Amino acid sequence: MGSRSLYSLIEKTKLLFPSLTIRVKLLRNAYASLPSIHRKLLPPLLLTVVVLLMLPATNDTANSQAGTSARKSITLTVEPTQNVANKAGLGQNQTNNTPRSVKIKLLDPEDIDGEWRAHVIRKGDSVYRIFRQYDIPSATLHDLIALRPQYITRVRPGQIMSFYIATTGELIQLRITDADNEPVLFSLREDGSYIYN
């Protein structure tokens, strides 16, 4: 009787999970190869193991574990430290301690070999497909979207996207003419980031 219920459980599992059919066949063959006494004793033994695993631990083991995990306190001494930048600014006023802004130079298309390419946006065009058409990496598109998403993601038919692409394949400038013919300009800087003009 025990083996019938195990077989029925295996069949139900096989129906619920068809990908396990091979594993079920292997288990069935292994179970069938066991001697009959082992096949009769295996289900009650498995049930006993599962029940024992679900029983809570006794208080003796809990008390012995609690005794070994006593809390210990450690005192920490923290001394104030100063880095080189702070030491350099000690003699100065607090207002002079702010870092100076560094201007990162824009790359000028006139100084870089490349060419202008223009694309008139038609109905159904997506910016991703346009950038792919001109072999501009999607990472560049993501950088531009991060700057001004409204100008990049909301293009309309009739707008013109002009790309200045260097011979190395980098996008140096992107000019988008707005509906009011006011150009929006994105330029590449020396550090490899883009800026909105």
Rank of each mutant, 00 (worst) to 15 (best):
M1Q: 09
M1R: 05
M1N: 08
S3I: 04
S3N: 03
R4S: 11
R4Q: 10
S5E: 13
Y7G: 03
S8W: 08
I10Q: 11
T13L: 15
T13E: 06
T13G: 02
K14G: 02
K14A: 05
L16R: 13
L16F: 09
P18G: 14
P18F: 02
S19R: 06
R23F: 14
V24G: 01
V24L: 15
L34Q: 09
L34K: 09
S36F: 07
S36Q: 12
R39Q: 15
K40P: 00
L41G: 00
L42V: 00
L42I: 07
P43F: 04
P44T: 09
P44C: 04
L45F: 09
T48L: 14
V49I: 12
V49C: 05
L53Y: 02
L55G: 00
L55S: 01
P56S: 10
T58S: 11
Q65R: 14
A66L: 15
G67E: 15
T68N: 10
A70I: 13
R71K: 10
K72W: 05
S73W: 08
I74M: 02
L76V: 14
T77S: 07
P80T: 13
P80Q: 13
P80N: 13
P80Y: 15
P80A: 13
Q82R: 12
Q82W: 07
N83S: 10
N83W: 07
A88S: 08
A88F: 09
L90F: 11
Q92V: 06
Q92Y: 06
N93K: 12
N93W: 07
Q94M: 08
T95C: 05
N96W: 09
T98F: 15
K103F: 06
D108P: 00
E110N: 05
G114C: 03
G114Y: 09
W116F: 12
W116T: 02
A118N: 15
A118V: 07
V120K: 15
G124K: 14
D125E: 08
D125M: 01
V127M: 12
Y128P: 00
R129E: 11
I130S: 07
R132V: 01
Y134E: 04
P137L: 12
P137A: 15
P137T: 14
S138H: 13
H142L: 14
D143G: 00
I145A: 05
L147P: 01
R148L: 07
P149A: 12
P149Q: 12
T153E: 11
V155M: 04
Q159C: 05
M161E: 08
F163W: 06
I165S: 04
G169H: 11
E170F: 04
Q173F: 01
L174H: 00
L174S: 03
R175W: 10
I176R: 13
D178H: 03
A179K: 10
N181Y: 09
E182P: 00
F186K: 06
S187Q: 14
S187L: 06
L188P: 01
L188F: 00
R189L: 11
E190V: 08
D191Q: 01
G192D: 11
G192A: 11
Y194L: 04
I195Q: 13
I195M: 09
Y196C: 00
